[in-house]
Design a protein around this nucleic acid. Structure first.
Lengths: 202, 202
DNA sequence: TCCTTTGTGATACCGATGTATCATAACGGG
DNA sequence: CCCGTTATGATACATCGGTATCACAAAGGA
């Protein structure tokens, strides 16, 4: 095979070009030609590696999700031994706010795609429901096990829902420029402080 | 003038057709022709009342915002005398969740447009930043005045931000079908219960 | 009455976009 | 050595969408 570069790597290159482009100019500006230009390859190449535009978008989405999970696992790996629930939550949420450029791109594409999925049920089947739902269940379980660290009179399921919805809402307001990432982090800390028992809020 | 119907009314008719269409098939399906078909008028008519597509979208957005404010004022008008802060907050949030069809349409269009504004700063200048920001300030003031009704150790500004971000996040998760409107309302009640002093949580 | 303004229809135009086609290189195995 | 599979380029095609143009009707004032 006259493979100059690896197939999978090329696909990743193109997917990342798509993400850059979408983050900079919006998902509506993501055309096959524009992606090709951003990646510095020919239109035909994009067609070759992804037969259709839908396939390209789908693959990119998976790529994004995987990358996000990887960063999250990495963040958790930094914590040794039995992870306190609070650290776990903080690691999760740190990844879930659009603080740096990369994270901003991730959220922008994800949100754009989620909006599409709102009116196209076949899209919604995939990660937009399953992903967050699984996350919420996992978080609920974590909180339930760590009931001792929590403030009194808390319901783990409701707290998990609250954390995720709040984080997502804050993320959106950062994306539209209503508030800064730092201010969003402050609100999130405020929330987490109140979720965990008050006696040791650092 | 050979005006068969009122100009403003015709514009409203078209704007509402746009909202219906966008709520059903997504903002990407909103084309001049499709709006015309949905409204049951000719393409030329849409062009006549709104010179350009951008103008049509902008006008529709204002129409939506005005309608939402009207419903909110109406809800508040039902409360007589000095409104308790809790009632005020509940009226506000009740309007801010996509419970009925109309509200769902509103949120879908608003969210779609907000996503566009994330990458087109000239759009963001308009209601997407100013509106929520004003709302948050108003809510902050309301909470500050009602400090007596609130739980101890609360920061009005942070609480306002939390309420709005949480509500928006919940609304989004309802739109993508992750959770039902009823479940979102339950989480919101849970939150409001904890925001206001515990002794009289009904 | 006629002419100007307002309202409505049919249709044309042009650019963009997803996809398809044709050609051709590069390389490895028989 | 040559043939087929993989990889890449140039370009064509059909459609769609925003906008523009031309024609015309209806009505009210001069």
């Amino acid at each position: 095979m006259p493979r100059t570069v690896d197939h999978a790597q090329r696909r990743a290159t193109i997917a990342e070009a798509l993400v850059r482009l979408a983050a900079r100019e919006g998902l509506h500006a993501v055309t096959m030609r524009a992606v090709a230009a951003e990646a510095g390859v020919s239109l035909r190449l994009v067609q070759y590696y992804f037969e259709t535009k839908a396939a390209l978008l789908h693959a990119t989405l998976l790529h994004l999700e995987e990358a996000s999970h990887a960063r999250w696992r990495e963040r958790l790996a930094g914590l040794s031994g039995p992870v306190p629930a609070r650290r776990f939550v903080e690691a999760l949420l740190a990844e879930a706010l659009p603080t740096d450029e990369r994270s901003r791109a991730f959220h922008l594409v994800w949100t754009s795609y989620a909006v599409l999925a709102m009116t196209e049920p076949d899209l919604a089947a995939q990660p937009f429901v399953a992903g967050p739902r699984r996350l919420e269940q996992q978080l609920t379980a974590t909180l339930r096990e760590a009931a001792g660290e929590l403030a009194e009179d808390t319901d783990p399921a409701a707290e998990a829902a609250r954390l995720l919805a709040l984080t997502h809402g804050l993320g959106t307001s950062v994306l539209v420029g209503q508030r800064t990432a730092a201010s969003a982090e402050a609100v999130l800390r405020y929330h987490v402080d109140r979720l965990f028992t008050h006696r040791d809020h650092a």
